[in-house]
Nucleic acid binder design. Sequence first.
DNA 1: ACCTGAACACCGTTCAAGT
DNA 2: ACCTGAACACCGTTCAAGT
Lengths: 191, 191
Amino acid sequence: MTSAEKTEKTLRADARRNREKIFAAARELFARDAEGVQMEEIASHAGVGVGTIYRHFPTKQALLTEMVRTRFSRFTEIALEAERIDDPREAVETLIRQSCVEVEGDAGFQLAMMSPDELEWEGIEQEKAAFAEPATRIIDRAVESGAVRSDFSFADFPMLMCGITSTMYFAPAGSDWQRHLDLILAGLRPG
Amino acid sequence: MTSAEKTEKTLRADARRNREKIFAAARELFARDAEGVQMEEIASHAGVGVGTIYRHFPTKQALLTEMVRTRFSRFTEIALEAERIDDPREAVETLIRQSCVEVEGDAGFQLAMMSPDELEWEGIEQEKAAFAEPATRIIDRAVESGAVRSDFSFADFPMLMCGITSTMYFAPAGSDWQRHLDLILAGLRPG
DNA sequence: ACCTGAACACCGTTCAAGT
DNA sequence: ACCTGAACACCGTTCAAGT
């Protein structure tokens, strides 16, 4: 057994439990108010010392990244479901709209989505790739069938999400982001 | 002479010069890299002590706000120019597109635009109102003439700018934000 | 092995001392 | 009046001591 395997697989029961508790506490606090959360706060909310957090996650950003990774796998599920929709146009709309709904109310994810530090995304390449596959198929199918404008591609997806996400963050209470989404969906029509 | 008038009007020559130097230094540094700038850095770049900055601006955010205020008056000029365009559709497009061009390359403004702290905008209500007047006229005219979708209004403007702005900030080198803009302009077409 | 929390580092802000 | 910069506060991160 290599050291890497050991690090990945074996975790003492209490350590695993702590990791879980930290994760749960962080998820809850980040979702509420992503900016104001302090490490000490997360630690006490999880019932551990700060040092324990750093044993499991090298940095505050890394902790945030981990939560983003989890939610990203939901995106993939959404894409796979949307792909089963026959109408190409409706499939794209569902993909985008459901992705938005998924992150509504998760301020931490929204913040990460808008974050200027691209570096932090490095840990999520794999999840991103897994999502890109079905999402690309959906978008390409819509383009080929003429259901959306021909210059639309998967490359635009992060950009759109970033815009809508910032609207969510900026105006969390209202439904402004749905107007924004409507506008963008309208913009997809073939021109 | 009231104390308020005195505060507004009379400033010793050196104080005024310092204020100017701080402003120039902050503008330059914020535009380059809005996140990494430190107060000490701005101070030394301006050739003053940190305390002097705080004499002129109560807080780092307030300094940023002041730069946003300045640029906002440019928005108003853009809107007044755009209003002189006969074609209603072209007037709207010019309004939005020129506003985007104006803030390209100003990372500080982009950051402020995306900032979750709405409070900081309190100082700019007046400039915002001055801009809102011609901008509203342009948009309403376009709606009435059927040049854009009927549910579009000035209320959507900040939201759109926020989205495009975050694209600029996120991908400063490329021209991704222009794709984003194109998509949004396309979304304005009457549906 | 893993946990704890006092100590450290960094940076925004203040304020006593200077002119 | 205004300026300076050392000192303070706050919070992310580390690490010596404990189990």
